[in-house]
Amino acid sequence: MADRAIKLLVIGESGVGKSSLIRRFVENKFDENHDVTIGMDFKSKVMNVDGIDYKVALWDTAGAERFRSLTPSFYRKALGAILVYDITNRDTLVKLEAWLAELDSYSDNPNIAIIVVGNKIDQDRVVDRQEGRNFARKHRALFIETSARCDQFVSDVFKEIVEKIVSSEYFDNGQMNPNGMEIGSNDSDLDGNASTCYC
C-alpha cells in the first residue's frame, strides 16, 4: 500500500481556491470562510484507479508571496502539480508562469505531471477558457475548469492527474525516466476536458 503513494502539489496565487478544491475533494465540503493557509498544509485521500488503490497526499501551499521561500522545500518527490488560477482574475493566470518557473527550478522530478485548473466557474468569467487552454497547451499540461463551491468537475481534476501519473512509464518502474512519456501532449485530451466543463 505504501508504495502506491502519490504526492501532489497544489500551487497558485493566494485566494484562487486551492484549499477549497482540496477540501471539496477530500471532505466534500465548501466553506467560504476557512482559514488562510499558512506555509503548507496537507490532506490525503485514497483513490481507486483501475481497481488499484492509491494513497494520494495533497500538499496545499500558501499562495501569499511571503511564504514563497518556505514552500519550495516541499516540492520534493511530488509526482504531480495542480496549478490553480481564478477565472475571475486574469492576474492569477498570468502569475502561473512564475509558479511554473518555481516548480521547474525546485522540483527534483523533471517529468512532473501538471494540470492547470481554472477555478470559480460559478462566478462571472473574466478569463476566457481559451486563454487557460493556451497556457496549458504551451506547457504540455492537462486543463480543466472547475467550481469548488458548486462541486463541478473537482473530482475530475484529481482523477485526471492521478490517471496520468499511474499510466506513465515512470510510475511503473518506480523510477524517473528522463526519456519517458510526455505528459499532457495529447491535445484531444484537452479538448475533451474543455467541453465537459462548460456550465
Binding site: D35, I38, G39, M40, D41, F42, F67, L70
Partner: peptide, 9 residues
C-alpha cells in the same frame, strides 16, 4: 501542522 508552520509567521 499549522503550528509547525506558524513559527515563521
Amino acid at each position: 501542522t499549522t503550528e509547525m508552520m506558524c513559527t515563521s509567521l
